[in-house]
Amino acid sequence: MGFRCGFIFCLLICSSVAFQSDELLVDDDEFEGTQQIQYTDAAQTRSTPPPSRTTSTRRRFSDPDLDSKVQFQLEHSFGDSDFAPAGLFTARLKTSSHGGQSLTKLRFSRNVFTEEDRKKFTALLQEDGFYSVRLTTNVLKSQEPGESYVYSSVKARCLPRGELDEHFVIHMDGVNILAVNYGTPGACPFPRQLRLPSKWSFNSLTFLKSGEQAPRTPIFADDILVGETGEGEGVKPPEKSFWAKYWMYLIPLGLIVMNAITQAMNMAEEQVGGQAAGQGQAQPQQSAAAIQRGPGSSTVRRR
């Protein structure tokens, strides 16, 4: 539940490039008291074609404090082609009091598809191929050779929905990227229709996610004590109510009582009727039988 609240709370939207959002940047301080290291940071970037191909990284941070800034590249591939740079992630490296490092304030700027990219992408749409992205696993050592990458693919046909909608979830463990989940924010059911994007611009939504903390096992001291004295405490059936215990006696009892009442009523009627002829006597007897049957049958039905 905590995750969900955090998710909604942290869903930060910053729109177009020119506009510097006044987004509420959530600091981890909020969670420090509760021993939770889980946090989610999200940013939505709408990369309408910028005038030049230069990456539009945001470098203006409100306070240039001790936290250092890291950048890491997003690379993409069309089908079987080699990976090529496609965008840049910028984040702040936060060092917590007990030495752990984590990333916050993730920003993403997407490079615009070149003419060649568009051609490749269209070809991919035709053949229902995979569009893949990859990220380096360690953001601090991203420039070193021999690094390892995590990658993720999506069927290219899932992306175009007017614009190209994409959705990144980057799973972090400290400064290590465990996995990147790439896909469309909406649905993409199987017989995927061929649709060309109306605008060659990306509408990116990025999330930074680190794992949750498992809920702690509840410890009931008194329960343990009881458990030691009495055996199999947890399995006792709940205490039954009076009705639950004795319903099988109460229902027949009720029937008998009702039966007796109707009989008594009949008797009274008989006495009123006096010694009438046999013809007249049959009538009330029948009705009594009907009454008698009435409640009994309804009980059966209810059961």
């Binding site: 995979f130 990458y149 990658y151 799973h171 990227i177």
Partner: peptide, 14 residues
Amino acid sequence: SKDVWSIILPSETE
């Protein structure tokens, strides 16, 4: 076959 995705767990912690 084609590798579609990968998850790399940091070997020093997991």
